[in-house]
Design a protein around this nucleic acid. Structure first.
Lengths: 249, 249
DNA sequence: AAATAGTTTCCGGCACAACCGAAACACTTC
DNA sequence: GAAGTGTTTCGGTTGTGCCGGAAACTATTT
């Protein structure tokens, strides 16, 4: 399975990752961190600069804006983004909270768009940010509509504990997913960020395939039982509209 | 100079570019387009998927959201973006037009942030979008503050004609750059997009090094002589504020 | 069902390019 | 100006990327 998937490619992106995490660096720094010979790292950096995906400014290397370009182009093409159009803004207005659109990719939940309502808490949410599926409302909303086999696989990979409230028991998770299917929306109570409650509805296409999730996040203090239900309604409506757009286009 | 900058890296990113341009594709498609053996392309795709920068969905490959992530992280770290904070929004409000923040990278002007005013024309402007320096107001604003040597180098590489109005004569360009330095702002009259006028002011740091440019774009019909001067004032003020933030932080 | 065509995936041996040690080269710093 | 730190160049060896060919799928047609 894990044969030899082209070492050069793997190494090149290891370097990119490292650059991205530390916001840039010098050849020797990277070499030390990645435990590679300096000369090798140097060769790679040179090659990466040549491609235009890395820039060098006086021996300081950093990832270039080409990543933004590629990222945005792809996002633009994803149907969900088109379909969700101004729904996110509506939800942000109506709830006042922090609203995001997410999709599933590589077994993780990834943010594609962010819309902050007037009272939104400032979260570390930006397009491209990723998080485990089982520890978030949108993740659970999406999991609830995947095949049992797929879910089992993910469970097997282990349910990482993000906060003390994170669901790590497979049985509890499966039970919650059933609830999600019944109610039509998912909730997370400080399972990813302590003190934050998130409510998310799944976006499905006409074949009942999961395409993403719309998520509202706010502080626990502000989200009592009744307020949650209100929000759940708004989010579900937005998800439905999106679904219609998706099928129509 | 152009020795052998790691062929694998170059090829990997050629494939990424191709995927990005066409919004994805199959192994054989790419192989045909890039004139490479299918098996080779297949190997690369496999490796790319392994890294997480490409996703495969039932034999359809596309660039993953990791590009967004890397791009946004870097953008977040660029000082100009922090410094420009809400200035863009102010400019968009005051002018009503399409406002962008750009930097220079790899001899091109690259958009980092977009803010649309109430009357903004819908342009193909997104973070990461790039354009030639000499054919845009922000580009000229930045060129005006680069060393003569640097400018000469770029001129030597040729001044591509983007529209019929694009400045392609080196002498004219140099003269314009001088004007930019005197007036403090640059103008482009349909030199990149026919019918669009752009006005841009350079953002410098305390060492007079160019850090970026703020740009306002609107339709020719709406931007008469007096209106342009008004906009020039607004943009220049915004650039100044940004500069102060930049030096202060 | 069986046959056909068009893919993707696997395999393996050869050639050549990645790899990295060592040396040369830039720099600071004392 | 010598010593220290980091970058770049060089080149021989070795391991791995490369790609032709074949097998395994998938889809479509008869």
């Amino acid at each position: 399975m894990t044969n030899t998937p082209n070492r050069s490619v793997e190494r090149a992106f290891r370097i990119v990752d490292e650059l991205s995490e530390n916001g840039g660096g010098r050849a020797s720094e990277l070499a030390a961190r990645l435990e590679m010979p300096v000369s090798t790292v140097h060769d790679y950096l040179q090659a990466l600069v040549e491609t235009g995906y890395v820039t060098a400014e006086n021996k300081e290397y950093r990832t270039s804006t080409r990543f933004l370009e590629v990222g945005h182009r792809q996002r633009h093409r994803l149907e969900v983004v088109k379909a969700v159009r101004d729904e996110l803004a509506t939800v942000a207005d109506e709830t006042g909270e922090h609203v995001t659109l997410l999709i599933e990719e590589h077994d993780q939940a990834v943010i594609l768009a962010v819309q902050e309502g007037p009272d939104a808490i400032n979260l570390f949410a930006y397009p491209g940010a990723r998080m485990p599926l089982h520890a978030t409302a949108p993740g659970k909303a999406m999991l609830a509509h995947m095949t049992d086999g797929r879910v089992a696989e993910l469970v097997d990979q282990g349910l990482v504990e993000v906060t003390s409230r994170t669901v790590t028991d497979p049985d509890v998770l499966l039970e919650q997913l059933e609830t999600v299917r019944q109610r039509g929306y998912a909730v997370d109570e400080g399972e990813r960020i302590a003190g934050m409650v998130c409510i998310a509805a799944p976006v499905l296409d006409k074949r009942e395939q999961i395409q993403g999730a719309i998520c509202v996040c706010g502080p626990e203090s502000r989200l009592g039982e009744t307020r949650r239900e209100e929000i759940a309604d708004v989010v579900q409506r937005a998800a439905n509209v999106t679904q219609v757009n998706l099928d129509y286009v």
